[in-house]
């Protein structure tokens, strides 16, 4: 598949048929507070993140969006409060197993090896080439890119390799921290298509985004954060923050 945008674009479901609307929540947060170096990053946040849907975390800079994402796969720890994943408190789960079930892709693409195929194998050493090719195509990259050197990849290609690398582990939930902020419009659109495609296949995606139009296009549910607090949440088409585009 050579066409970058050849991913099957699924029609967004309407409000009533929104994916994940009836699925049990992937995460439940109960009065989660994160304080670091005297700064309050999350302030008593309680929320639910649905399963099999795309949830956008939106809000101004410093609202605590990225911190919340890191709390969900235990790269950050709450100072107080509780986070449950599929009903189980995070400390009761094996942390390495949790991270394999809850993948995280950062804002800046970080490639870890010299060759694309090797990068896809970092979290999954037994990944065969056929499966790796499928993963690349899933993120809108041609299978022929497997043999390419990572040093020569564009920002958009690198970000999609990072996405494919996270998918290689087989996560149930994918946490994406502003995955398109460093990309051009075409690359960003390809990543958005990929996200919708993954959600349609049953994956839960949590997307941090500054970009309100993008959140409107991609998300089913929205959590609006400000100053570490949850100020609004609900279906994407009913949250004022997205409707007003502020």
């Amino acid at each position: 598949m050579d066409e970058p945008f050849a991913i099957a674009v699924r029609t967004r479901t309407c409000a009533l048929g929104r994916p994940g609307a009836d699925a049990p929540p992937s995460f439940a947060l109960d009065r989660v507070t994160v304080r670091r170096a005297g700064r309050l990053l999350l302030d008593g946040l309680s929320a639910q993140i649905p399963g099999a849907a795309c949830t956008a975390l939106v809000g101004p800079s410093g609202a605590g969006k990225s911190t919340l994402l890191r709390v969900l796969n235990r790269l950050a720890e709450p100072t107080s409060g509780e986070v449950r994943f599929r009903g189980t408190p995070l400390p009761e789960l094996d942390v390495l197993e949790l991270r394999r079930r809850v993948g995280l892709v950062g804002q800046q693409p970080v490639l870890l090896t010299d060759r694309v195929l090797d990068d896809l194998r970092v979290g999954r050493p037994d990944l065969d080439e056929d499966r790796a090719a499928v993963l690349l195509e899933r993120t809108g990259l041609p299978a022929g890119m497997l043999a390419r050197a990572t040093a020569g990849l564009s920002g958009g290609e690198a970000q999609r390799v990072c996405l494919a690398r996270a998918l290689a582990v087989g996560p149930e939930v994918l946490l994406l921290d502003e995955p398109t902020s460093a990309l051009d419009a075409d690359s960003a659109q390809a990543v958005e298509y990929t996200i919708r495609d993954l959600v349609a296949d049953g994956l839960a995606v949590v997307l941090v985004s500054h970009n309100v139009p993008q959140a409107r296009r991609v998300a089913d549910h929205v959590l609006v954060l400000r100053g570490g607090r949850l100020v609004a949440s609900g279906p994407a088409d009913r949250v004022d923050y997205l409707r007003k585009g502020t």
Binding site: N73, L75, L96, E97, R99, R100, G103, L104, V105, G106, Q108, V110, L112, V122, G123, C162, R165, A166, V169
Partner: peptide, 13 residues
């Protein structure tokens, strides 16, 4: 740190 955390996020010890 970004590279180390990228590996940790993949479930590596």
């Amino acid at each position: 740190r970004p590279a180390i955390e990228a590996r940790l996020a993949l479930g590596l010890p």
